[in-house]
Structure formats: structure tokens, C-alpha cells
Amino acid sequence: MMRLPWFKYCAPKSVAEAAHILAAEGRDAMLIAGGTDLLPNMKRRQQTPATLVSLREVPGLKDVVNGRGLTLGAGLTLNQVVNLPAVKDAYLALHQAAGQVASPHLRNMGTLGGNLCLDTRCLYYNQNEDWRRAIDFCMKCEGETCWVATSSKRCMAVSSTDTAPALIALGANVRLVSAAGEREIAVNDLYQNDGAEYLTRQPDEILTAVSLPDLAGWKSTYWKLRRRGSFDFPILGVAAAVRTAPDGTVLDARIVLGAVSSRPILTEAGGLLQGGKLSDEAIAAAGKKATSAAKPLDNTDLDLYWRKDVVSAFVGYALREIRGDDMSATRLRIMRQL
């Protein structure tokens, strides 16, 4: 079996204390919550932090505040998020996205904040140290070259979080706290299109909470594509949120793609829908627009051209579901769950 490297373990009792440790330890320290992403990576020596700062004993990170909108502590496990009625009722896309991350065991450990900060993935990166040494490492970790696109100036690893596309579609913000202060930014602004530096979060910042706006009048959904009905990372995620007038005219729409780039992509397809009805033609046009935004590469499961091809179908599934079509049979067939 593969074993963890040595590290120092800190278990602060408050956000302030955790922020203080992070500030003092600098880039050698990393935060750990559920550990479902970080610990396997550490075993493969993709990350070898000298210090792990655990958030497990920090109070308040599991708080749920239900006011105007909903604020979720970043330390809630994915299953806790799935089981919150407030999430299921008003933010269905998040409920569905959190419920499809990995497998039940991992959802019992993995947290909402952890899934948002999930490391980007690549066939040339998610390998053990010896394997990576055999290819002289890669741009994301210890190497010079991106083996997916050898002329690329940046790392092309894939954003594989399920909850981020959903939260971007839902217009959520995240709170980032450091020893120097705190700030709140849109989830969309948490990411940048670089597989190595995929977060705008600074190393000394702690993602403490996710706040969702009041979305009365909106409907949302998340569709995940993967080879098997459980356990696999997404090879495509489509999150959609739409607000319609009583006559069905689209007032607002956001369509977000996951796993087809180094960051979740808020597409321009939503804008196309504004002012019209969710007709088959409008849905097809939105699918086409979203497809043009997808940039899958040959570094994850299944053929990359196919992964681009199916974007349109998935956007269609999502929008037809929001329109009120009964998509349960398709959902069951594609995602093996409702």
C-alpha cells in the first residue's frame, strides 16, 4: 500500500487560530477538512505539505444560517448538504451535485469547502511519484512540460468539482478568511483557467462559508456525466438555473459547465435564453452555444471529441427538465439515480 509522508498536524479550535497558523507556516502548510482529496494526493506525493492544519475541530464551520438566502458552513460534509431540506427545496442543483460526488463513503467525509477547492485532475498528474518521475514529471508538479499539450504555457489539468458549477449557476458567494482580514467573492471568481493555479484563494485564506442568495422564482438542476453511475469524477457537469415569468418567459438564466476546462465555465448560453421561452429551438441554440465554450482535452476518461459532442445533449436535458418535461427516465439511465 502507499503511505503518507511525514507531516506536522495542527488542530486549531477557531478560524482565527487556523488563520494564524497558516500565516505563520506560509506555503508549507495546507488545510485539511475531510481529507478525501488531499490524503490520496499526499500518498502519491503530488502534495507534500510540512504542516496540515485541520479544520475538523473548528466550531462554526458546520453552521447553517437560514435567513434571506442560505449560508452553509464550508465544513458541512457533502452528505449533510444533501440532507438539508432547505437545500433540496430551493437549491436543487446543489442538492443534486453534492449527491453525485464520488461515493457515499466519500460524501460522508468530504466537505462542501473541500469539493470547491478540489485539486484539478489529469492522467499525467494523478499517478504515483515513480510513474511521474518516469515521464520527468509535468508542469503541474515538479516538471516543466504539460504532457497533454506540450506547447502549452499553462497546465491543462481539469477542474473536477461537481458543486462549483452548481453554485455558480445559483449565484453563490464564498467567504475567505485570513489573519489579515476577510472577503466575500462570487464562486465564479474563486477560479482561474490554469490547472496549476486554479484558485484565486490565497494560501493563507480559509474558505469558511458559502452563501446562497434568495432564489424565489428560480429553478435549477445539475446533470453529471461519468462512465459509471457512482464513484467516478465528472467528465462533464452541466448546471443550469433559470428564472421565468409566470407566462414562461425567461427572465434570467445561467448555464455552467464543469470538467471541460481547468475551471468551471459560466457560458454565454444563458444570455441567449433571456426574453424568450424555453422552446426546443431555444434549447438547441443554447446547447450549441455552450458546446463552443467547452474545451475538453485528452487527459481524463473517454474520448475528448465525444466529451465535447455530448455537451449539447446535456444542456438540453437540463433545460428541458427545468421547462417541466419529465426527464426522470433519462436521468435514471444517464446518471443511474434520480
Partner: peptide, 18 residues
């Protein structure tokens, strides 16, 4: 000639949901 999927995450055996 290097095996790219030497693990159960990338070598996909069927799971119960399939």
C-alpha cells in the same frame, strides 16, 4: 508503452449502480 490507468479509479470495473 507506459500504462496510463494503473488504478481502480481510471481502470473502471462495474459498480453496483451500473
Amino acid at each position: 508503452g507506459i500504462l496510463a490507468n494503473p488504478g481502480f479509479l481510471d481502470y473502471r470495473i462495474p459498480v453496483a449502480s451500473d
